[in-house]
């Protein structure tokens, strides 16, 4: 066990836990944002650099501070380590720079993008970024690609977090895609099309932190904040069957997996649940999903969602 102090909060965690996961035990403001790390995907993290933190004391044995900021998602804690996240001006400044870098090639098409409202990059830029850009050159552009009948890839919006690559690698068997080319030219390869026969390929939509991989069955149907998220489940022989229905009235507009408070899916759902079960009668609705009051998803909804609606929807 190791004792670690993050922003003045001390927690005791097993050896080998990363700083990010230790901070998540503390919760709240202490948690560094993460764009590429995904707890349920092995090997993810270390690419986006948004989770940089300052280690002001290395450990009990070696109390020297680490000279540079470290990526909290891939740095394990040491006993007696002291970490500064929100309390360090260096971290906040570095994060501003990281946001600016992430946004260099990201188009300003939030009004069109289906991810707007639940986009991690949008939240990150709102919280840490500057409203202006210093980038004067042409942003990279790609044609959008339909990956099978359900998923659309907008490479222009991609921030190369590799989450979808890990998802396809770990949830499906026989991955035939990855990130091709290097540096500025890197892109998610179109070979991803071949991974599409798999039943769990739809999860790349959920793990994508931006709007690069979107649901074609929901494309331009509505905006996220007009739909009402409802927890629901059904008996599925392929997956856990636990999902969130995004509804307008009694119509199901979209089905996604359940994301936790850090925006991560713990139990992935299959393509049948996600794309084919778009009737309220296919599902047992448990009740409205709790959404942060400050999220745009709960904007303009004046009434507390009432659980009494549930029996009404269960008629089938």
């Amino acid at each position: 066990m190791a004792k670690v102090t993050i922003d003045g909060h001390t927690v005791e965690v097993p050896d080998g836990t990363t700083i990010l996961n230790a901070a998540r035990l503390v919760g709240g403001e202490t948690v560094p944002p993460a764009m590429c790390y995904y707890s349920s995907l092995k090997g993810s993290g270390g690419k986006c650099r948004t989770c940089l933190v300052e280690v002001s004391k290395g450990s009990e044995k070696d109390p020297r501070p680490m000279p540079k900021l470290v990526a909290s998602c891939s740095t394990p804690v040491m006993d007696g380590m002291e970490v500064k996240n929100k309390t360090s001006p260096r971290v906040l400044d570095a994060r501003k720079g990281v946001v600016e870098f992430l946004l260099i090639n990201h188009p300003l098409d939030c009004p069109i993008c289906d991810q707007a409202g639940e986009c991690h990059l949008q939240d990150l830029a709102f919280e840490h970024g500057k409203s202006a850009t210093r980038y004067e050159f042409k942003r990279r552009e790609f044609e959008k690609i339909d990956i099978g009948p359900y998923i659309q890839l907008h490479m222009t919006r991609c921030i190369l977090c590799y989450r979808c690559v890990y998802t396809a690698d770990q949830l499906t068997n026989g991955r035939v895609h990855g990130v091709m080319k290097r540096g500025d030219a890197a892109e998610i390869s179109t070979f991803i099309e071949k991974a599409i026969d798999n039943d769990f390929s739809g999860n790349v939509i959920d793990v994508c932190p931006v709007g690069a991989l979107t649901d074609r069955t929901f494309r331009f149907k509505s905006r996220v904040w007009y739909t009402k998220p409802m927890d629901a489940h059904r008996d599925c022989d392929k997956c856990c069957g636990k999902a969130v229905l995004w509804m307008v009235g009694n119509e199901v507009y979209r089905v996604t997996a359940r994301k936790d408070q850090f925006g991560e899916v713990k139990e992935f759902i299959c393509n049948t649940c996600r794309f084919d079960k778009k009737e309220a009668s296919d599902w047992t609705i448990e009740g409205p999903r709790m959404i942060d009051r400050h999220s745009v998803i709960s904007a303009n909804k004046y009434f507390e969602p009432e659980p009494e609606h549930t029996p009404l929807l269960n008629k089938a």
């Binding site: 009004p111 069109i112 509505s222």
Partner: peptide, 22 residues
């Protein structure tokens, strides 16, 4: 107009509705 829906969500009187299309 690109039917982003920000006017409708900003509208305190809920007077605006829209349907988007590609």
């Amino acid at each position: 107009c690109t039917a982003c829906g920000l006017c409708a969500v900003a509208c305190p009187a809920e007077a605006i509705t829209m349907v988007a299309e590609e």
